[in-house]
Design a protein around this nucleic acid. Structure first.
Length: 571
DNA sequence: GCCGTTTTCGGCCCGACTGTTTTCAGTCG
């Protein structure tokens, strides 16, 4: 098994961690961390790149030295720098540094002075009263660390849709504060990541301190972690952390930029400011002490001489280079979507009749919808057999005769059997406008077998779209083992499309995979997999994810008019 | 360890809050 990108990234992260604890040059450890981020989001595996003879030092943040080290890791599965550091600083120092309030400096102090090599050592140091005697530690540190050690370290990220529910309720509460001007959720929530680790709220107000005060009294607050005049951090009962920041109005744009992130994007922007001899912080863009921009984000981007970058793209994945040359993609919007290509009715496990789903789609100003009920192998969903499918096709034909300016397409979500064969024979499939194929059973095949299974399904020319390609359910089920690089290449070669499932529990493909697919020339379908009328509304989550993947309307088949869509569905 | 239209040295993002200290280092985002 070749070394995965994620494994190399993890080695570099560990190396950075230990270098920090050791007290090595901080910029050296930063270089390892930067390289780890670059590697983990590469669209292709390092192994593939090396085989193709690519020069890894061409990658941003990776120079001659790290390129050589990566090649050695791939060849030997070992990283001598990390191995040496581990021998030098034995134990689980990474776990210790992950505790809140402990960073590299304090971990080193604990290691040197108290011989703390593990979480268990730390527990003992606390019990024996030695910790609080250490310079820089006291009763508070002891208490907080004891609490952190007592509860399991399940660092949870929240699904975007879950966070939205929390955010809306809290915003409504805060907006009733006296003197509140603006309140907006920034952070990864505004970048529309599939999951968020916390909520970052930015506020402008006449009396900022009182807004922070009000947040600490919110009924859903479980604990207050920090509370100052301009910044307050609380944890909600749901365990979602909330950071509130108050800034004066002329700084709103700068603060929004800063608080939206990503951190890596901000660092890159600050680098541009530095190059011009300016300084960028959350209060504005400054030449000496003079603020030259700050009220809006656009103003700051303009002053920096680059195009304004949409929040969804702010990940330092190459967007800044595009903005410098004015070549940012024109990201797809909700208004570009003309139909939904994965929808269930009450013929299988949906709740509404076909006519009602169609009417709801028309109400959304769509031009078409595809009914794609399950095939019979998916018995738990009352999958259709060939006879029922034939009757459903008749019903849709009759419905289409009555509809004007709107078309119901005849599809099916056909189960991909373990061997890659489909759950209907070609004779049945040929009666449909197109087929969505998906895996519903046997998630535990080997990576090789699972990949072959999906490619085999794509070999069938009736299959136009592979639905929820990795099968993941966020926070509930891991994606099945799959060589996505091979899947995308196979889809490109066959003119098959991949789904970006918009269900907020799935969001499958991920942003990175969707971006890779686009780069490979594969088009995507942003589909809701709706099982009810309300489910159609999830399309916005799919569009958010698509924007994170840099998709434009041209990359998305259901952003095309019906005539063009029909051509794209034919293979 | 990376990087470069102020290049091969000398930089590398920036500020708020906490705890412990008595003026600030460390952590965090």
């Amino acid at each position: 098994m070749p070394v995965q990108n994620a494994e190399i990234a993890a080695m570099f992260d560990q190396t950075a961690e230990l270098l920090e604890i050791k007290g090595d040059n901080p910029f050296r450890s930063r270089a390892y961390r930067n390289a780890a981020r670059v590697i983990e989001r590469l669209p292709k595996s390092i192994t593939t790149l090396l085989k193709a003879g690519e020069d890894l030092s061409e990658l941003p943040g990776i120079g001659k030295d790290l390129a050589g080290k990566i090649a050695t890791i791939v060849a030997t599965q070992k990283f001598d720098v990390l191995d040496r550091l581990k021998r030098e600083l034995p134990g689980d120092l990474g776990e210790i540094a992950a505790l809140p309030g402990l960073g590299p400096k304090r971990v080193k102090l604990l290691y040197d002075r108290l011989g703390v090599h593990s979480l268990e050592d730390l527990r003992r140091a606390i019990r024996s009263g030695r910790l609080r005697k250490l310079r820089g530690f006291g009763a508070k540190s002891e208490e907080k660390l004891a609490a952190a050690l007592a509860k399991p370290q399940a660092e949870k990220r929240f699904k975007l849709a879950e966070a939205e529910g929390e955010a809306e309720a809290m915003l409504a509460y805060l907006r009733s504060s006296a003197g509140l001007d603006q309140a907006v959720i920034a952070g990864s929530f505004r970048r529309r990541r599939d999951t968020v680790g916390d909520l970052d709220i930015l506020v402008t107000a006449r009396d900022g301190a009182s807004v922070g005060e009000r947040l600490t009294k919110y009924e859903n607050v479980a604990s207050v972690l920090a509370h100052g005049p301009t910044r307050t951090t609380v944890v909600l009962r749901s365990q979602l952390q909330v950071d509130l920041r108050v800034v004066p109005k002329p700084s709103y744009g700068a603060a929004l930029l800063y608080f939206t992130g990503s951190k890596a994007h901000n660092i890159a922007l600050r680098g541009i400011a530095n190059d011009r001899g300016w300084k960028l912080n959350e209060y504005g863009l400054f030449a000496d002490k003079r603020r030259i921009a700050g009220a809006t984000e656009d103003e700051i981007y303009r002053k920096l001489g680059i195009a304004a970058i949409p929040p969804e793209m702010r990940e330092d994945r190459g967007e800044i280079a595009l903005a410098k040359t004015g070549k940012l993609p024109k990201l797809i919007t909700l208004g570009d979507i003309r139909g939904d290509l994965h929808v269930h009715s009450n013929w299988s496990d949906g709740t509404a009749p076909i006519a009602e789903m169609a009417a709801a789609a028309q109400a959304r100003d769509y031009a078409y919808i595809a009914i794609t009920d399950h095939s019979h192998h998916v018995t738990v969903a009352h999958g259709l057999d060939a006879a029922r499918l034939a009757r459903q096709i008749d019903e849709i034909d009759r419905l289409n005769e009555k509809l004007e300016g709107f078309t119901v397409l005849k599809g099916a979500e056909v189960d991909i059997l373990a061997d890659g064969n489909l759950d209907f024979p070609d004779k049945v499939l040929s009666k449909l406008d197109f087929v969505v194929a998906a895996v519903h059973y046997k998630f535990d095949l080997s990576r090789k077998a699972q990949t072959e299974r999906l490619i085999r399904a794509m070999d069938n020319r009736h299959v136009s779209i592979i639905a929820h390609p990795t099968g993941r359910l966020i926070n509930e089920r891991e994606p099945y083992e799959l060589d996505m690089e091979a899947i995308i290449a196979a889809a490109a070669a066959r003119g098959c499309h991949l789904e970006l499932n918009a269900d907020p529990d799935r969001l499958d493909l991920t942003d990175i995979h969707a971006h890779t697919a686009k780069a490979a020339g594969v088009k995507l379908a942003i589909s809701t997999d709706a099982h009810s009328i309300g489910g159609l509304g999830n399309v916005r989550f799919g569009v958010d994810q698509a924007r994170r993947a840099w998709l434009e309307a041209a990359d998305v088949i259901n952003a095309q008019p019906l005539s063009r869509l029909k051509k794209l569905l034919k293979r």
